[in-house]
Amino acid sequence: MPIQEPRVLKAQDLKCSRGGTELFSDLGFSVVSGESLVVKGGNGSGKTSLLRILCGFNHPAEGKVTWCSQSIYGHDEYRQQVSYVGHQSGVKPDLTVLENLDFMQRLAGASSQESEIKEAVRFVGLFRQRNMMTGKLSAGQKRRLALAKLQLQQRIVWVLDEPLTALDKEFIGEFEQVLKNHLDNHGILVVTTHRELKIPEYRVKRVNLSPSC
């Protein structure tokens, strides 16, 4: 899915507080298509809060986030460009693997063929479990299922909160390749991780949220 014009996700003077304590302030960055933003920081430093702000779920205490120089709040077009995988990944334990992806796709306004969904399931290595209830999968398998959505939806901005948690080494390798392809296709990636991701250095921007004592 090639995209011609460069798109910019920009944050200015962001300030975020949670439960009365300030997590970060004066945070600014801009990410253009083909780049990734790697957010680092200790536990409780506000990584998830930052990601949720970038998705438009939460509002920052101060500052603004813009997409192609328009504020992301109430920006319907931006909302349709974002894929978010958080700690809870929106996977229903009482649906099977295929049903989960099917409903996710239909609610995301994408009409995927059954073959595409099966292909995605095969890619994340859940083909044998495709008719199993998701609640019976292991933590790593659930995470794989959540990540399968990224490939199906083909949105521009991927916001991933600790995507590598519970994944095995082999799949991490494959997944890094997916991330690289996404960046090569002019996608944008915002990710928090405790592990180093193998992404070409020129495509990486870093933000360090130091834990406020």
Binding site: C55, G56, D76, R79, S83, Y84, Q88, G90, P93, M104
Partner: peptide, 17 residues
């Protein structure tokens, strides 16, 4: 309740509908 607990509500929010 369930949608909040499993994160579906965020996914619904990102839907174009």
């Amino acid at each position: 309740r369930q949608d909040f607990d499993d994160g579906s509500i965020e996914q619904l929010f990102l839907s174009p509908h």
